[in-house]
Write a protein that binds this DNA or RNA. Structure first.
Lengths: 141, 141
DNA sequence: ATACAAACTCAAGTCAACTTTAAGTCAAGT
DNA sequence: ACTTGACTTAAAGTTGACTTGAGTTTGTAT
């Protein structure tokens, strides 16, 4: 496949594909003249990358998580990311319930509604400058 | 409370508090000399902001969602955000299950494992340059 | 009264993740 | 042979969310 086909199949602009290749997230195997040639599996991989981005992981994290393969699949790390997602799912759930309640609630101001505040107090401390990134990774830098 | 107290109570640096005030996300009511004076409720509000950030909303969105009060609480918008969160929760759940499976799976490469791929295919198209932001809002710009 | 740590302002810098621009290359069709 | 249009690279620009730096202004403690 040439880059335009991959772009069409993945929904990503060619510029992003080049950028991802430069970052090592995807690979082209060879050229036709100047033009990159990609294998069909790259589309699958791009879907996975999008998914990871959407789940809030940075490109670097995704790179670590899904090495093209490797002797080091780092299972503990994958499990740690899964646990993080569990925590995040809990927060999002609390937030969602909070929003639904706020939309239904008669109180003039959310802060005067005890139920709203209670709902949101479930989820607490997980703030970081880059909500996309793991705290651990931030620390690591 | 002065800014240092708020910083301590909220865990956010003073620079962030000034920045949030400038953006209209929080308010100080008055000064002591040059120094801002905050009410105690600002801490509650900051917690809510952090929660929103963590849930993937931009500061602008959070501003819209939680107006200090207002005649226009825009319930449909809150419900729409809640629906978005539902979608995101589904994706994160799929991703989490995918990661747990990948950590347990014997296949040398995730892409060769059908179960892994199947798990991740649940969640699909929700990519955007700014995963923090709503598609709708991007479009709006 | 003087020192000084802590606040202040305003402008500029940073970071991730891309996008845009400018200038060049080349396979393929006429 | 020549045009064309999709591709290429390298460098610079963009965006949101802050942070940092430089220079200024206090409230409080000595």
């Amino acid at each position: 496949m040439d880059i335009a086909e991959v772009a069409k199949a993945s929904g990503l602009p060619a510029s992003t594909l080049r950028f991802y290749e430069e970052k090592g997230l995807i690979q082209s195997h060879g050229r036709h003249g100047l033009r990159r040639l990609f294998g069909a599996n790259v589309v699958e991989r791009l879907a996975l990358i999008s998914l990871g981005r959407n789940a809030g992981f940075s490109l670097d994290e995704i790179g670590e998580m899904f090495t093209p393969e490797g002797p080091d699949i780092n299972r503990p790390m994958l499990l740690a990311k899964a646990d993080e997602l569990d925590a995040k799912i809990n927060e999002l759930t609390a937030m969602r319930d909070g929003l639904r309640h706020a939309a239904a609630c008669k109180a003039p101001n959310h802060f005067e509604c005890q139920k709203f505040l209670r709902l949101l107090h479930i989820a607490g401390k997980n703030q970081s400058r880059y909500p996309n990134k793991l705290k651990e990774n931030i620390k690591k830098q």
